[in-house]
């Protein structure tokens, strides 16, 4: 019945804040192994969509299905244990804990055998930073630490909320490499504003606007779309 290639599916998913329809009846299908990008102007509801999928705020209506299992209403920790992990738009790290301890916490490894956490740190290029306090890291490094925590959990699906926000082109390029590599073992959904970045990694793109899905397609199709252009230009102008 269900398409086995689909890892994550939302059906009629909505989240309203009072009168604000932050997420409005969104039907989304994320295919296994894809890098699926979600774009849309500020306030389109992208982060709220992640919050609802990851169980951090309840949905107003609709449901979320992850690997054939309905996860709507489940707690964030239960969803995370199923293998659906996320990062945050503004990095959330534990300021007074060392970088190593972060991945230790995420990987649940015993301190003695640190293969997984070293691998995760190496993948994001933070290996030399292991003993620094996370609070002392630069912004870009914090974002990479969040990525490392997600990777250390060996997830099936990773939701990344603007992984390159506040980074320069060079750093973004490095993140693109990390995301591509992560996609070899997991499915990745990325929220991004940086269209160059999206062009470099996306297998599929969903455009969100005012809480609703405006368009879906390959990046080439999306870039050609008049409506999408109008929304973005209207947003800027």
């Amino acid at each position: 019945m269900a398409d086995p290639g689909v890892v994550l599916r939302t059906a009629g998913l909505s989240r309203h804040f009072g009168g604000v329809r932050a997420v409005d009846s969104v039907d989304l299908e994320v295919r296994a192994g894809h890098i699926h990008c979600i774009i849309g102007p500020n306030g389109a509801g992208k982060s709220t969509l992640f919050n609802v999928i990851s169980g951090m705020i309840p949905a107003t209506a609709g449901r979320v299905v992850f690997q054939e299992e309905t996860i709507t209403g489940k707690s964030p920790q239960a969803i995370s244990r199923l293998g659906l992990v996320r990062s945050f738009q503004t990095p959330r790290v534990f300021a007074a804990m060392t970088v190593l301890d972060h991945v230790l916490l995420a990987s649940r490894e015993r301190p003695e055998n640190g293969a997984r956490r070293r691998e995760a740190l190496a993948r994001v290029g933070l290996l030399e930073r292991g003993d620094m306090l996370a609070g002392d890291l630069a912004h870009g490094e914090k974002k990479r630490l969040e990525l490392a925590m997600a990777l250390a959990m060996r997830p099936r699906l990773i939701l990344l909320d603007e992984p390159t926000a506040g980074m320069n082109a060079h750093e973004s390029e490095a993140i693109a490499g990390i995301v591509r590599e992560a996609a070899s073992t997991a499915t990745v959904v990325v929220i991004e504003h940086d269209i160059d970045f999206v062009r470099g990694i996306a297998d599929w793109v969903t455009v969100l606007h005012k809480g609703m899905v405006l368009r879906e397609g390959t990046i080439a199709e999306i870039e050609q779309d008049q409506e999408v252009r109008r929304v973005y230009l209207g947003d800027i102008g």
Binding site: S54, M56, P76, Q77, R81, V85, R86, R92, A95, M97
Partner: peptide
Amino acid sequence: AIRDDEEKVATLG
């Protein structure tokens, strides 16, 4: 970690 940001800890499972 919980004391610092319990929501984040929950997302770590």
